[in-house]
């Protein structure tokens, strides 16, 4: 079954993962800029990362017939340093015209601090000025519910950005309803320990429907699974959900949201 994994960090994954994803039906991925597991020592570190995301990684993906798209930002875990964030933000406009760049992401909050919020607001302003889509990372675990609300408030404060152009990722049972009610798109991340299991993601789809929602693996350098999306499809099939429902959340919905960017080829 063909699918899109709309959130996965392939710079941290092997070519074997690309091969297995292609075999499982993956036709396209989108890769947001994120934390590398350590703090970069300078803006130059981000410049090189953005080159990797816009030049190297699409070529790797193409070897397996997978289309590669990306999102750029300084992630919230490195956003406490306002001077660094300012320098990195200044680098982004030069990359926004690259053919695989869909917008600004994954921006958001980590510990819900004032500096993180300031850098988030600066990213939202950049997305507004450049008419870019936004992919949002919501905080982990105990910080998620509070952070999700602060993020949605910040987008709404900007005033110019339609919620239909913002995807709020990593929703769980305690945030999904708020996000949908306020008009945003939402993503469910399938992780072995934190975030959603395939079973809980299927539960959430059953409870909240299949409009403005997708699933992703967020595979990265940590405990994660680049095949989590097709595994969730198997869970849905064994409950009696149809292939049409699966296509809706893993192909049609990503195409609808991402297709708002002129650079996404929604074939």
């Amino acid at each position: 079954m063909q699918y899109i994994d709309p959130h996965i960090h392939m710079v941290s994954r092997t070519t074997d993962d690309y091969a297995r994803m292609a075999q499982a039906g993956c036709v396209a991925i989108t890769e947001p800029a994120f934390w590398a597991g350590y703090d970069r020592s300078s803006p130059q570190g981000f410049y090189d990362y953005f080159r990797q995301l816009t030049d190297t990684e699409p070529k790797r993906a193409a070897q397996f017939g997978i289309e590669h798209y990306t999102w750029l930002c300084i992630n919230p875990k490195e956003a406490e340093d306002l001077a660094l964030a300012k320098d990195v933000l200044a680098l982004i406009p030069d990359f926004l015209d690259q053919p695989n760049v869909l917008g600004i992401g994954e921006i958001g909050l980590n510990k819900n601090s004032r500096n993180e919020l300031k850098v988030l607001e600066d990213h939202i302003a950049l997305a507004d000025a450049t008419e870019s889509l936004i992919l949002v990372h919501t905080p982990h675990l105990e910080d998620k519910r509070k952070g999700t609300r602060l993020i949605m408030d910040a987008v709404e404060r900007n005033g110019n950005i339609k919620p239909s152009r913002v995807l709020i990722d990593h929703v769980e049972e305690h945030t999904v309803k708020d996000v949908l009610d306020r008009g945003f798109w939402c993503g469910m991340t399938l992780y072995p320990d934190s975030k959603c299991t395939p079973q809980r993601a299927a539960d959430i789809l059953e409870m909240f429907g299949t409009e403005r929602i997708w699933i992703n693996s967020a595979g990265d350098w940590g405990n994660s699974d680049p095949l989590a999306v097709p595994k969730c499809h198997v869970e849905m099939l064994r409950r009696g959900h149809t292939a049409e429902t699966i296509q809706k959340i893993s192909l049609d919905n990503p195409r609808t949201f991402l297709g708002q960017s002129p650079r996404f080829n929604a074939k």
């Binding site: 980590n110 004032r114 509070k146 609300r149 305690h174």
Partner: peptide
Amino acid sequence: FSDPTEQPLESAAGLKGASG
């Protein structure tokens, strides 16, 4: 398990992870 407060944290300096 969720933080019930509503105001932003003054600083995240030295903080990265979440305990759950």
